[in-house]
Computed example of a mutant assay.
Amino acid sequence: MSNAQSPAASRRSERSRWAILTATRELVSEVGYGKVSIEAIAARAGVGKQTIYRWWPSKGAVIFDSFLALSEVADGPETALPDTGDLAADLKVVLRATVAEFADPDFERPIRALNTEIINDSELATQYREKLAAPVDEIKKVRLRSAQKAGQLDPDADLDLVLEFLYAPLFQRWLLRSGPLTADYADSLVETTLRAFRP
């Protein structure tokens, strides 16, 4: 007998999966990571605990996947950074979008909860680096390498360092709530970074 699901069963599974991810994000936002339980997620999603455990081995795993779904990180050309030939303009578009995301409460609350947990959970930190941070950084580096070839960026620049210059101040300001995250602030980070790594 075939193990393939019928189309109707596949649709039900996908609905259940999204219900679980949505419920997880909502609960993390409402009560914080520490108070979220598999039981609470199951009750909010309208599924049994075993349905969750069939797809995820732990609370941390389902919370992390709910964040990945929220971030809409997926393979495909839509994830590429813009490449108009103007590096400064392209980076400003990307950094302004990042600022807007961090200012959106629906995005900000779960990502803050996730970062709080990453500090204390080395396994989750490893998952974050491997599944999210590293792939996203590689997408950014593709654009930076294009700029190096075009003579817009120091050809010997350490691209990991370039990304740290660009994003670390923004992340620290957001994490510590030490100042406003605005489009002007994003633009200033781009301009300062490009001055530091100009050819």
Rank of each mutant, 00 (worst) to 15 (best):
A186R: 01
S29E: 03
A183S: 07
G34Y: 06
V28S: 10
A157C: 09
D86M: 10
N115M: 12
P7I: 12
E164K: 06
R145G: 01
G48L: 11
A19Y: 02
F102D: 02
W56F: 15
L175S: 13
E123V: 12
D75C: 06
R12K: 11
R11F: 03
N115L: 08
A134H: 08
D65M: 04
M1L: 09
S122F: 15
T51R: 04
Q50M: 09
D90R: 07
L114H: 00
T51G: 01
L124E: 01
P155K: 01
E101T: 12
E123Q: 15
E39P: 00
I118V: 15
A150H: 06
S71L: 09
W174H: 11
N120Q: 12
E130V: 11
P110K: 07
G85L: 04
G46Y: 12
V47R: 03
I118S: 02
F67E: 00
Q148R: 02
T24Q: 05
T193E: 06
A134Q: 09
A40M: 05
W18P: 00
D160E: 12
I52V: 07
Q172H: 13
E164G: 07
N115R: 09
F67R: 02
E191I: 13
Y167T: 09
T126M: 13
S10C: 06
E26D: 11
G48W: 13
G46C: 12
V47T: 06
S122R: 15
S6Y: 10
F107G: 02
K141T: 07
A103Q: 14
S10W: 06
E108P: 00
V62T: 04
L70G: 04
D75M: 09
R145F: 06
K92C: 02
E39Y: 12
A134N: 10
A45K: 01
V36Q: 00
P199D: 13
A40Y: 04
I118Q: 04
P169E: 03
G48N: 14
G179A: 13
L176G: 04
S10H: 08
Q5T: 06
G46I: 12
A9R: 07
L81W: 14
E78S: 08
G34F: 04
R195N: 08
A40P: 01
